[in-house]
Nucleic acid binder design. Structure first.
Lengths: 184, 184
DNA sequence: GAATTAAATCTACACTGTAGAATTTTAATT
DNA sequence: AATTAAAATTCTACAGTGTAGATTTAATTC
């Protein structure tokens, strides 16, 4: 009887073993704990469930990771539109980077997603932070692209070099960007 | 005799089937053709050789990819230190991006490498292009970090969204950076 | 000529995502 | 109440991945 064989089929009573929420929560835990995307088998083991059970809730692994990404990205810093814009942007960037580095794989998942919803979250928050500047579209867009891609590059470096790069590394480059912005 | 069984053991005469160079060349071809890192089996098949033969020349797949990376990065644009620095930097960035997007996987391989030789190539060329500005160290370093990580972010976006992003997308953000640089 | 090294193949393993079928329970329909 | 359908789960199995280890053959060295 070495390995306990679990009973097959739908569980009795109202004791559903799983739910999207539970799966996502555990996936986030493992992602943060192990610093890398868990395998479906590892995730299922943690949930005490057969790996294939996950497919009842998500079409495939990519869909699961996208759901994790959407859910996590809501948590980035919400800037105060009436604050000091430079400090607000800085805090937003730090928050974004902390998230992307605490949950490796988020970045690639986000960039590969068909819906750009998650990517828009950062951009929307950036607009909030920059409200005081009242930038025109042609001024805002290059800044947005520069900032987003720069942070993605830093996040990628962080996740290729775990623990070796602090989020503060963006401060001097951010100053450089700000300088180009204030000297219009 | 459906499948032809190749003769085992060291080949006769001076007809060595493989060499580091041949492997690297074919790896680059497949990388560019298929737009993704080939499997060792695919690479070996293209070379008409057993997959394990590759391990005679490289310790593992990562080592092979690192060799590809080192070899390819030499090819980026060599700026003229006496040219117009803005145009030189722009051309360097375009060249760097074209390389990173033509050979997906290069970026991650480079960032994960222990030796930072390959990453230094871009930085050295950037210094060349910026010679006319005679920047102090404290001015150069933020610029270097900003530019490198920004380009890596763009390259990542390109490789997550194949064919959808032209290298020219960096032009406006580059102008923004240049502005912060000329207004010292 | 014997021993060593070089260059290759073969076999086999653990790990991955996941397709497809079987099983058990609950809900819906007749 | 009986039947049918749907939901929630497990089991089995497969193809694809990198690669460890043993084996084979030929060239080189002593």
């Amino acid at each position: 009887m070495s390995v306990k064989q679990k009973k097959r089929g739908r569980p009795a009573g109202s004791s559903k073993a799983l739910s999207k929420l539970i799966i996502l929560q555990q996936a986030k835990n493992l992602l943060a704990e192990q610093g890398k995307i868990p395998t479906l088998r590892a995730l299922a083991a943690e949930l005490n469930v057969d790996p294939m059970a996950l497919y009842h809730y998500f079409a495939n692994k990519a869909a699961l990771l996208e759901a994790v990404t959407v859910s996590l990205l809501e948590a980035i810093y919400q800037p105060n539109p009436e604050g000091q814009w430079q400090a607000e942007v800085r805090q937003l960037c730090h928050s974004y980077l902390e998230l992307l580095s605490r949950y490796p794989g988020l970045l690639e998942t986000m960039l590969k997603m068909s819906t750009d919803g998650p990517a828009q979250v950062f951009i929307a928050r950036l607009e909030q932070a920059l409200t005081p500047l009242a930038l025109a579209k042609v001024e805002f867009e290059p800044l947005r692209d520069l900032l987003a891609d720069y942070l993605h590059g830093v996040a990628l470096a962080m996740q290729c070099n775990p623990g070796g790069i602090p989020v503060g590394c963006v401060d001097a480059p951010l100053d450089l960007i700000f300088r180009g912005l204030t000297s219009r």
